[in-house]
């Protein structure tokens, strides 16, 4: 692999906003992690270190059910969005000039979530579809797909098609060309898009609220009903645990896979 130019040299003026971004992103996270270990219930005074809230968390089975449901929905809708969205992005860049289709592919990303939520709920009841995790999964795919399409499209923006043409000239089928040439070029865009779709699904509330079966709530629905009247340290403990687990999963995944090279 060709050595990349060292990033942190020669870009001095970029360092400030770079670190500022991460400071901004992690300042509230630091607050909630600290509060999860606070014996006091109020966030404004420190009552000493305590793990009580984590203990209470273990007793809360609705949070556990919610977490499992959320992971099913997020993983499923991310997989579906990534496949459909990537195909769509390639199709839009290579196989059509229609601006209507172009705009349509981004429409879910710009639709007020409440409108999509109510539209889907009315639609599901009109076709007499029973609500469940599948109805949330489909709903999340609608907007997840739009984000994948747009991010992959941004990478295809002014596509260099010479490699693909060369591949076809050498007798490769369109399918082989797509798998062996197009996809690898798009990998960083696909990963970024999938990451977005997953992140958005994990934390989505409005659409999930309207399209879920009452017996199968996702985690944001469980949490929203609990914190509507103020966050408790128990919820902060949950957030901290989620972060810790995500960190671990990401680090392990990164070691085990070739994710690094794909980027």
């Amino acid at each position: 692999m060709a050595r990349r130019e060292p990033a942190l040299r020669g870009n001095g003026w970029l360092r400030l906003p770079f670190w500022l971004t991460y400071l901004f992103l992690y300042a509230p996270i630091a607050v909630l992690v600290v509060m999860s270990f606070n014996r006091n219930k109020t966030p404004y005074s420190w009552g000493g270190f305590s793990l009580d809230w984590y203990g209470r968390l273990a007793e809360n089975s609705s949070l556990r059910t919610g977490l499992v449901n959320t992971l099913i929905v997020a993983l499923g809708s991310t997989a579906l969005s990534t496949v459909l969205g990537t195909l769509l992005a390639v199709g839009l860049a290579r196989h059509t000039r229609s601006r209507v289709l172009d705009a349509l592919s981004t429409l879910p990303a710009i639709l007020p979530d409440l409108v999509l939520a109510i539209g889907l709920l009315v639609f599901y009841s009109a076709i007499k579809m029973t609500l469940g995790l599948h109805s949330v999964l489909v709903a999340h795919t609608v907007f997840g797909m739009a984000f994948v399409t747009a991010v992959v499209r941004a990478r295809l923006g002014h596509a260099d098609t010479s490699l693909e043409e060369a591949s076809q000239d050498l007798g490769a089928t369109p399918y082989t060309t797509f798998i062996k040439v197009t996809l690898p070029t798009l990998a960083p865009g696909i990963v970024a898009g999938a990451l977005l779709a997953f992140t958005l699904s994990l934390d989505e509330f409005v659409i999930a609220f309207f399209t879920h079966a009452p017996s199968q709530p996702t985690l944001p629905i469980v949490i929203y009903s609990m914190v509507r009247f103020g966050v408790t340290p128990e919820i902060n403990a949950l957030a901290t645990l989620l972060l810790a687990v995500s960190f671990t999963v990401v680090i392990v995944a990164q070691r085990l896979t070739k994710l690094t090279e794909a980027l």
Partner: peptide, 13 residues
């Protein structure tokens, strides 16, 4: 929110 769900038509469950 529960009103919206109940009034959308169909069986809310």
């Amino acid at each position: 929110t529960v009103m919206a769900k109940l009034t959308a038509g169909g069986d809310s469950g």
